[in-house]
Nucleic acid binder design. Sequence first.
DNA 1: TTTTGAGTTGTTCGA
DNA 2: GTCGAACAACTCAAA
Length: 453
Amino acid sequence: MTEPVLLWLRQDLRLHDQPALLAAARSGPVIPVYVLDDESAGDWRIGGAQRWYLHHALEALAASLEAMGSRLILRRGDAVTVLRALLEETGAAAIHAIRHYEPWWRSAEAALSDALYLHDGNHLARIEDLTTGAGTPFRVYSSFWKALSQRMPPDAPLPAPNTLAAPAKWPGSDVLADWGLLPKRDWAKAFDAAWTAGEAAARNAVDAFAGQVAAYDTDRNLPSVEGSSRLSPHLHFGEVSPRQVWHALSGLGEGVQTFRKELAWRDFTDGVVTALPDYGDRNGRPKFDSLWRDGADAQRDLKAWQTGRTGYPIVDAGMRQLWTIGWMHNRVRMITASFLIKHLLLDWRWGERWFWDCLVDADYGNNSVNWQWVAGTGVDANMFGRIMAPLTQSEKFDAGGYIRHWVPELGGLSDAVIHDPEAGGCRPRGYPVKIIGHREARERALAAAARMR
DNA sequence: TTTTGAGTTGTTCGA
DNA sequence: GTCGAACAACTCAAA
């Protein structure tokens, strides 16, 4: 009997197009392992919403593996320590895993390098292959896309293995329910209705989106329309790979190119955080370090933003959607983020942390890069002085239906007044007045930025 | 090294 | 109400 190998699963919870799984299967008996690691990542350990998702994703993956006569071994602790112990315990010859680019995973991979075989599978291309003429990583998306395009399409997705040999003896496993991943807050019901985790569900989501992608160009910007892909949690947990998505959408019309450009952002942002590992914690441009408000008033404003009580309907709708289903429409993410940073003049990291805890799709690269982009503090940044006008955006992208759905106090208002009830002379019961006026907020932010310069 | 052109997602103002 | 121009401004990528 040959020695078994460990298959270390992280954000790649699938059986199809899983090169680490295929390589492991070819080498002999396979012990699939998921390690719940709340230590390596420090403050970036997975947040509450993702724990809910992870619970269901692991449940689905374990069922698929069991259908193949295999198992999913669950362990908890620092990943390097746990895997070293498992190598010892099982006599496994090696670990196979898909490469990930979060800084804590890169450290763990380096620490295990003598036993670890890394495979590329969660990106459209190898990050290190995409560099500028000078050999440095891209900091500007459009240039990155140009370089990536030349390497597209990605290779065809790989099949799932037919069989998976079991080891002579299975190591012990934690019981998933004992991990306490399901939240104490009363989230579960709305989450259940919004998301189905698992590889099969991910495939269904891709199929459903394939039917809509032709209209993606216009519909993705309309919060009231289901025009975005809703694939982000599936992609984050690797229930589907980006190249599977790329190929599944081939030849489906104009919107495909636009969507693929969005898909490529995952690759781009992982390149940025590979070059700048603390990008989630540190301003890309240090001069912004002292721009933000602090103190009790700032905390009160943060709370109003988090709970969707700013008096700006589009902002409040977004924040309540986030809290309720662990996800927010992309355009509204921009509007709410810009509002926190510029209208409330609060540190973007406060918002980033909130998103990290609340989003089922929170990705270290995407979250950091996009917050810094909106804030204007980063590489490839928007200018700070470009302040989104929430009321204009709400009207322009026709968010009336979206607001009525997520802000029940405004459910009875017509499109004519819903974007700005105050200006329309409406004072709906229980809905707060604006926390700050748009013009006033804009002038305050611009003045603060001018002082900084 | 220097220069040049261009940059995910806008807003406001005034004609 | 609609439209185009002005806005403000810094860094990156490539020639």
